[in-house]
């Protein structure tokens, strides 16, 4: 895969003495949805947080190997973290809009990155909200606190604020696990829509969700990448016994 958006090369990750990722090699294609699946504690979140260096906030971690995003090793000392995190956005398990108005939630990114003048904010807010399908519902209440929105709306808003800073990779760590089935389905629809322009990596415990939205899937177990390939192939003809056991629910 010559045009991989994210390339992970022989990645080892340690929390103190505990090794959470073992020699992971993975290439994530551009403008597709890649699902990361595996049992609890296998290192999915850890891997995802390597892509925007959020693990830097945890003390006592150590990392070996390379993570290359758009041809640049992001663990190289000269990397600008602000720039990296602007490009690689993250959506969390629990929707976490800021305790500001809806408008200010979206304007936050552009204003901290100084890439637009205040006059352009309304336009950016409108564009971002339209992209996540919130504009029609919220256009008359942009000054309301974001915390008054429903869970699904909050999660959409969290996605919208990433679009506002022109992120092009979206990392989603179980983005629907705090939502009901209908909201989940609608967020999945949004993801399929966003795939046309963005590279999405999603961690999920929901096999159906992985099967529904992703085009590629990676199965992890105890910090190791067991199998990686097209979702359809992985779910219908898994190469490894462990993968088959997990996706058919025989894992135990």
């Amino acid at each position: 895969m010559a045009d991989a958006k994210i390339k992970v090369k022989a990645l080892n990750f340690y929390y103190g003495k505990f090794q959470a990722l073992k020699n992971v090699k993975l290439e994530i294609p551009e403008r597709e949805i890649t699902a990361i699946i595996g049992p609890s504690g296998c290192g999915k979140s850890t891997l995802l947080r390597c892509f925007n260096r959020m693990n830097d906030l945890v003390s006592g971690v150590r990392i070996e190997g390379e993570v290359v995003v758009d041809g640049e090793d992001i663990y190289c000392p000269s990397v600008d973290l602000v720039h990296l995190r602007k490009k690689v956005g993250m959506v969390f398990q629990r929707p976490n809009p800021f305790p500001l108005s809806i408008f200010d939630n979206i304007a936050y990114g552009p204003s901290i990155h100084h890439f637009a003048s205040r006059k352009q904010f309304p336009e950016i807010v409108e564009r971002s909200l339209k992209a996540v399908g919130l504009w029609n519902d919220l256009k008359d209440r942009l000054r309301d606190l974001a915390l008054t929105l429903s869970g699904e709306q909050q999660q959409r808003l969290c996605i919208a604020r990433l679009l506002a800073v022109e992120a092009d990779i979206l990392l989603m760590d179980e983005p629907c696990s705090a939502l009901d089935p209908i909201a989940t389905e609608r967020i999945e629809e949004l993801m399929r829509e966003l795939r046309k322009k963005y590279t999405i990596v999603i961690v999920t415990h929901n096999m159906q969700q992985a099967a529904r939205v992703s085009s590629r899937a990676a199965y992890f177990y105890l910090g190791e990448l067991i199998e990686y390939g097209s979702t359809q192939r992985l779910f219908t003809r898994p190469l490894r016994r462990e993968t088959e056991d997990y996706i058919t629910g025989r894992f135990g």
Binding site: L84, R85, K86, M90, N96, P97, F98, G109
Partner: peptide, 18 residues
């Protein structure tokens, strides 16, 4: 103040002071 607020902001590329 919930951790999620800080994480969300840092993950958007905000500096600690911002």
């Amino acid at each position: 103040v919930p951790r999620g607020y800080r994480e969300g902001s840092i993950a958007m590329g905000a500096t600690q002071w911002q």
